[in-house]
Nucleic acid binder design. Structure first.
Length: 713
DNA sequence: GTAGGGTTAG
């Protein structure tokens, strides 16, 4: 290498962006080195791998080289394998062969990586065969990527065979094998592989942690974590991020606290994961503290952290903070940021705003993906934008070429069903390109229930019985629909069939965050210091609101046939009552009480919340946990129709029932002119929709001129 | 002159 070459290469090494690359390229031309293969190779490698958003430029560079060599091709194959279109990496590999440039171990390693990222087993096998012919299949690096590729494609036997052919596998190859076991669900085999390994480095332990966590074996993950001789930030973030999808938020918070206690700085992954836990658990206060930390520690510029923060605020009910986080993002180039914001608006009932943001997103040149359209359709269905929703669905398939998933079809059924277009919804389901699954029918059943269509509900329930006969939610939904329609015998019969079919209703639980700790209450759960405190406070509250406010337990919402006294006893133990009482006992005065629960609220709890909210001037927010299938269930149901009849609105115009994200909200705005029926309706419908989207059930102080509004009394 | 294995957000 001569001096000029050395100088150019050192310039390229310090390059940060495409602009600088082009400047250096101009300099290279000026000194006559543009045809130097060494320089051209480095230039292509830089653009393909190191400099962001310059992959296209790397392609153009390669295209313009008269006699490209394998180094240049390898750079491009590698860059493309890590892009969002790894199939182009495979095309480049083919082109290389067509140009009679022999692929080497690097070409194979990168191309096999592309096949792994695409989960393209057939392409992977072809590459394997070709490597075999050229004698690269037992090469350490090629063998390792082949092992990974077969693992990614779910072929554990092939992975094992390739691995065993590697003459002297090093720790990286062993780790690839270990990882392949977990990818293929072979948890027990993974442990055997781990025990057989000649050496462990830190990564081997981290693979075990991640594998156990992904398999839901969190106890095993904890044991490995304890045994690890050294832990790094990936070990911590693997643990924290492992708990969240399993719904174990307490442990996620616990490990995060532990990490902080040890004086360690959480990395991006730990932060996004713990924020996601806050979002799902409704841990608003903890989320706010984390926001402070994010700003102070300088993580605010990280897109993933900002996205998680935005989602936390939106899911915890603070749309204005969510908007602020979005607005302050330095660059809005991530489709996830836009989608999260659209979903946030949708949850809060701002359907029009959500569609406007979607248009803005398109104008900014950001390509929406399948998840964006789920949020958008969700916004449309909850805002009653039927035709717009239909147009977006068409645009998704025809313009963006996105294949609709079950979620998209579910949104469409919801869109029609919610608007009361039940026949259209039913026809849509019947015309689906696949056999409708239980979830799709369940959406329709919910819509029938809301709009009181017993006939269609029975038809739908019949389909559900074939597909998923053991879902207690479906039975309860139908039973309640009968009850509300005055068909008490039919209602009782469905209830009765629950026990004869051996179906147990899921146990209700409620969670509340006090001093950054999540407390969980279960209906009629065991007695301990915490529940005793809750019961004691509950007794005090009940006494006050019974005497001063005239609260009477609403046992008529317990739709099954038990004695009144017993009914009262049953409803008085519901977990949300305990959680509210506990919050009132332990939170500082005037704090908003936020509760996450797995089932929908019963009529009595609903009424009690209103009384408490009024008597104590408290805002109470109930969230429906998103991580539970139980959100389809109605707990000894209160019908949203009853809520609507309370406010004497036309219940048919809006659906609130039976759809999994429903809790409903009651948010009263003490502005007198809202009492004109038209305004009242639009205001209420918008706040009710708000809760549906948000899974929030919110009661604010709802005094008007010092009197309880008539429809709430 | 290029590599392979482990953790995130909607």
């Amino acid at each position: 290498m001569n001096g000029s070459e050395k100088f150019c290469i050192s310039l390229l090494q310090n390059c940060k962006n495409l602009r600088q690359i082009k400047q250096i390229q101009a300099f290279i031309c000026k000194i006559g080195l543009e045809t130097d293969p060494l320089i051209a190779g480095k230039l292509i490698l830089n653009c393909a791998v190191l400099i962001p958003d310059s992959l296209d430029y790397a392609c153009r560079l390669l295209f313009n080289v008269r006699h490209p060599d394998s180094f240049m091709y390898n750079a491009l194959i590698r860059g493309l394998s890590e892009s969002d279109a790894p199939q182009n990496s495979l095309c480049t590999f083919k082109e290389m062969c067509r140009e009679s440039i022999s692929p080497d171990s690097f070409s194979f390693a990168f191309a096999i990586k592309a096949a792994a990222n695409l989960r393209a087993l057939e392409a992977g096998i072809q590459l394997h065969c070709q490597a075999l012919v050229l004698g690269f299949d037992t090469h350490l690096f090629v063998g390792t990527t082949l092992t990974s590729m077969y693992g990614e494609c779910g072929c554990i036997e092939y992975a094992r065979k390739v691995f065993e052919e590697i003459p002297e596998p090093n720790v990286v190859a062993w780790n690839a094998m270990l990882s392949a076991c977990f990818r293929c669900g072979e948890v027990v085999f993974a442990k055997k592989v781990f025990n057989r390994m000649p050496t462990w480095d830190l990564t081997s332990w981290n693979v075990m942690l991640a594998g156990y966590a992904k398999a839901g074996e969190l106890q095993l993950a904890k044991e490995v974590f304890e045994k690890m001789p050294i832990k790094d930030d990936i070990s911590w973030s693997t643990m924290i991020s492992g708990f969240v999808p399993n719904g174990d938020f307490e442990d996620a918070f616990g490990f995060f606290r532990e990490l902080r206690k040890l004086g360690l700085t959480p990395n991006e992954v730990s932060l996004t994961s713990v924020l996601s836990a806050c979002a799902q658990a409704g841990a608003f206060e903890f989320g706010r503290i984390l926001h402070g930390f994010v700003e102070k520690a300088g993580f605010g510029w990280m897109v993933s952290v900002s996205n998680a923060l935005l989602d936390t605020y939106a899911k915890c009910g603070n749309l204005s903070m969510a908007k602020l986080v979005f607005e302050r993002m330095p660059e809005k180039t991530s489709v996830i940021s836009w989608t999260t914001m659209i979903a946030g608006l949708a949850m809060h009932g701002c359907g029009m705003e959500a569609t406007q943001l979607f248009n803005e997103m398109e104008n900014c040149g950001i390509k929406p993906d399948a998840v964006t359209f789920v949020s958008l359709l969700y916004a449309c269905s909850h805002a009653g934008l039927v035709e717009q929703g239909r147009e977006y669905f068409n645009k998704m398939t025809t313009f963006y070429g996105i294949e609709p998933s079950i979620e998209h079809y579910g949104c469409m059924v919801d869109l029609y069903g919610r608007a009361g277009l039940l026949q259209r919804a039913y026809d849509f389901v019947c015309q689906l390109p696949f056999k409708p699954c239980a979830t799709i029918w369940r959406v329709l059943l919910g819509a029938c229930s809301v709009h009181g269509n017993v006939e269609l509900a029975e038809k739908v329930k019949f389909r559900l019985l074939e597909l998923d006969p053991s879902d207690s939610g479906d039975h309860i939904l139908l039973s309640n629909l009968y009850a509300i329609s005055g068909k008490w015998k039919a209602s009782a019969a469905v209830r009765g069939s629950l026990s004869s079919l051996g179906i147990n209703k899921e146990t209700g639980w409620s969670m509340i965050e006090v001093d950054k700790i999540m407390y969980t209450f279960v209906a009629g759960g065991e007695q301990n210091e915490i529940t005793n405190q809750a019961y004691e406070k509950l007794r005090e509250i009940m006494l006050r609101i019974r005497i001063e406010d005239g609260y009477i337990a609403e046992t008529n919402h317990v739709l099954y046939d038990v004695e009144d006294e017993e009914k009262e006893e049953v409803v008085s133990r519901h977990s949300e009552k305990l959680a509210v009482a506990f919050g009132m006992a332990r939170l500082s005065k005037g704090s908003v009480i936020r509760i996450v629960k797995n089932l929908r609220i019963c009529g009595d709890c609903h009424t009690l919340m209103k009384f408490i909210s009024k008597a104590y001037s408290l805002e109470i927010v109930l969230f429906l946990s998103l991580d539970t299938e139980a959100s389809d269930h109605i707990q000894d149901s209160v019908s949203p129709m009853l809520w609507f009849s309370e406010i004497q609105c036309n219940t048919k115009a809006l659906d609130l029932r039976g759809l999994r994200l429903i809790l409903g909200t009651l948010m009263l705005n003490p502005i007198p002119d809202l009492l004109s029926p038209q305004k009242l309706f639009s205001s209420w419908s918008s706040s009710v929709i708000l809760a549906v989207r948000l899974d929030v059930y919110r009661f604010t102080t709802f005094c008007l001129d010092g009197k309880l509004l008539p429809f709430l009394s």
